[in-house]
Nucleic acid binder design. Structure first.
Ligand code: SF4
Ligand code: SF4
Lengths: 138, 138
DNA sequence: CTAAAAAAGATAAAAATAGTCTTATAGGGG
DNA sequence: CCCCTATAAGACTATTTTTATCTTTTTTAG
């Protein structure tokens, strides 16, 4: 259970690759797709989602492509995963909107709250900077 | 992402209810299904899976039904969830069988290992006894 | 023998996933 | 202005998974 979809996996690979490139280099989608071995049309959809929420910035037309929307240390794995997979919801009672009428008395409910928090915390603690292994200015 | 399916949710509800019953009382599937508001035929499939791995013990024929396969304190949420949803696999590189050829160098891989461990630990720490709120012998 | 109850397997509708394809839009260069 | 390149957006499709239901078989108490 709880498996990341291909879309999520592709999303991570794509944006991590982008983070390894020089900060100001506009990257072609086709180059990214080839580098991380993802169907280009599928990756296009993913990057469109990134673009909408500002994770990446896109340039159209000749010389166009993608760069990160903010510096790599300000983008976490949680940002990336939630961008394409939606929020981390281990069960329907932890959507924030209190979906299950049993949740007030249910002894299982707090377990899912805990799972959600732990997973979010782990993913939020990892930035693209670390994943890309960018070297600091000397 | 990572949402428990209805099957998983139903499975938990069903077996937790069973754990609230007196230890030696054989319960009808139809009673359990009604009590936890799950389609009886669907719950039947779920309890068949439980039965196969010994989480519950089934009795066929007249007077038949289900009881827990072992005491409630020896059955964890992890047991229940994995019984019907399969192992906790946050990404395809943490199946145990090392599926992704990138996993040796991939910086993301350890994150999924960590997620998997945390979730498993949380679920394994909760037993049906706690969930059922069984009272101790005085 | 018979009625009750779970086991097993076949079937099926609905939803999610994993893509593909086509058209529109924007920008740069000649 | 026209053409080439590149992303944006939306329609479309195939496959897989989920969520069941139905039917037949097996078991067992009485
Ligand atoms: S775990 Fe409890 S609160 Fe959450 S969906 Fe299930 S019954 Fe409802
Ligand atoms: S996170 Fe890394 S090791 Fe895991 S599947 Fe993705 S590329 Fe492979």
């Amino acid at each position: 259970m709880m498996e990341l979809t291909r879309k999520g996996e592709y999303a991570i690979r794509g944006i991590v690759y982008l983070a390894t490139r020089p900060d100001d280099q506009v990257c072609l989608l086709s180059d990214i797709a080839a580098a991380v071995d993802v169907p280009p049309t599928f990756l296009a959809k993913i990057f469109q989602q990134f673009s909408k929420i500002g994770l990446v910035k896109s340039y159209r037309g000749t010389g166009g492509g993608f760069i990160l929307g903010r510096t790599a240390d300000k983008i976490t794995l949680l940002d990336v995963v939630e961008a394409v997979e939606g929020p981390i919801i281990p069960n329907r009672c932890v959507t924030g909107g209190d979906d299950c009428e049993r949740s007030h008395t249910c002894k299982v409910h707090p377990v899912w709250v805990s799972v959600q928090k732990q997973v979010r915390d782990i993913l939020a603690a990892v930035s693209l900077k670390e994943l890309a292994g960018k070297q600091e200015k000397p």
